[in-house]
């Protein structure tokens, strides 16, 4: 643990190093795709969050904690907070219409011929997404920092 050269996997392989750079945006895009697909088909916030967190964790293994913190720009704990907040808040709009908590509210409208469906379910799912990404990154980042 004291040996400075034993930092986990940093600068170990060129392949991982380069691949992580290319995979990060792709995987993040894929996670957003999964998140929105969860609307009507298999997918959703949880699995998308795992994929999104996986992207950042891969980058972290390849480039180390400092570089990862730089590209993340904000603290994963904030992500966790925002995610949980969105998830909890999505329970309340139902109240305004006099329905039980968590009743799904839908707003469907046309945007240049395409049907756009917005709902509290989507808000909830986005909340789950952020919460999952935030939790995993908080745990992994603090564990990696403890190792280093």
């Amino acid at each position: 643990m004291t040996d400075p050269n034993k930092k986990i996997m940093k600068d170990n392989t060129v392949i991982l190093h380069t691949a992580a750079l290319a995979l990060l945006p792709l995987q993040l895009l894929f996670s957003v795709f999964l998140l929105l697909r969860g609307h009507d088909e298999p997918g959703g916030g949880f699995i998308a969050g795992l994929v999104g967190a996986g992207a950042v964790v891969l980058y972290l293994f390849a480039h180390g904690v400092d570089a990862t913190r730089r590209i993340m720009r904000f603290d994963p704990r904030d992500l966790l907070g925002i995610g949980l907040f969105l998830g909890t808040v999505s329970a309340f709009p139902a109240l305004l219409r006099g329905e039980p908590f968590l009743s799904a509210q839908w707003w469907i409208f046309d945007l240049a011929g395409t049907e756009i469906k917005l709902s509290t379910v989507l808000v909830f799912d986005i909340g789950v997404y952020f919460a999952v990404v935030g939790t995993i990154l908080t745990v992994v980042v603090s564990l990696t920092e403890a190792e280093e």
Partner: peptide, 12 residues
Amino acid sequence: FIPLLAGVLSLM
């Protein structure tokens, strides 16, 4: 829901 929301706000 009150403590849940409070917990989340407190986390933020």
